[in-house]
Design a protein around this nucleic acid. Structure first.
Length: 196
DNA sequence: GTGAGGATGCACT
DNA sequence: GTGCATCCTCACG
């Protein structure tokens, strides 16, 4: 079942935790590339100094101030894309970053997109999974509730896992309270988690 | 297997 | 001009 708007409108920490175990689906020609979400991070509002929206509304962050369930995709370090999902109500900027995925099918396609052969490294990082699933700027602001191009579905399998929390990665510029917040959610023991 | 450093372009003061 | 929610390569031994 495709996740609906109401799911994404929940509190961001709830969405980040609940996205674990869900299936990300990317339409690729006639094929559907499917991956299991195993790692997420929450970025919550204007008081979270790790969140891009803490610097106010700009052209880039505008999407985070909009409706939940849309993709917030930005370009960083001159070569990488990051895929976030907008949460909370309108005017309340927040999002969940997808940091790692476990590939469930079409491994050959992912390898081609990534130009590597090692399965463990295909999608175990936020920029890696974007490259593997061909997610880029053209999907920024895309509505994930449409069930086209890019969306998320519930999953009746993979319900047998434990959730772990830890501080978010790569945000040394943020205030200490935000650096220490355990807003990173991981599926315990999954082999496709990003490093640390 | 681990760590340092470079790549690279765009949004934003 | 600055800095970035990262990844890869290349040393090292």
């Amino acid at each position: 079942m495709i996740l609906k708007r109401e799911f994404y409108q929940q509190p961001t920490l709830e969405v980040a935790r609940s996205l674990l175990g869900k299936k990300l689906i990317r339409q690729h020609g006639q094929q559907q590339l499917i991956g299991l979400i195993v790692e997420t991070e929450a970025y919550i509002g204007e008081n979270d100094t790790a969140c891009h929206a803490s610097k106010g509304k700009t052209q880039r962050t505008e999407i985070m101030f909009g409706r939940a369930g849309h993709a917030y995709i930005y370009f960083i370090y001159g070569m990488h894309y990051m895929f976030n999902i907008v949460t909370e109500s309108e005017g309340n900027p927040a999002a969940v970053l997808l940091r790692a995925i476990q590939p469930l099918n079409h491994i050959d396609v992912l390898k081609r997109h990534r130009n590597i052969t090692e399965e463990k490294s295909l999608t175990n990082g936020p920029a890696k999974l974007c490259q593997a699933y061909n997610i880029d700027k053209t999907l920024n602001a895309w509505d994930l509730c449409l069930g086209k191009k890019l969306w998320i579905e519930t999953n009746d399998e993979h319900n047998d896992y434990q959730t772990e929390t830890s501080p978010r990665i790569g945000i040394n510029y943020a205030e200490e309270k935000d650096r220490n917040a355990h807003w990173r959610f991981t599926m315990k023991g999954n082999p496709f988690l990003s490093k640390r």
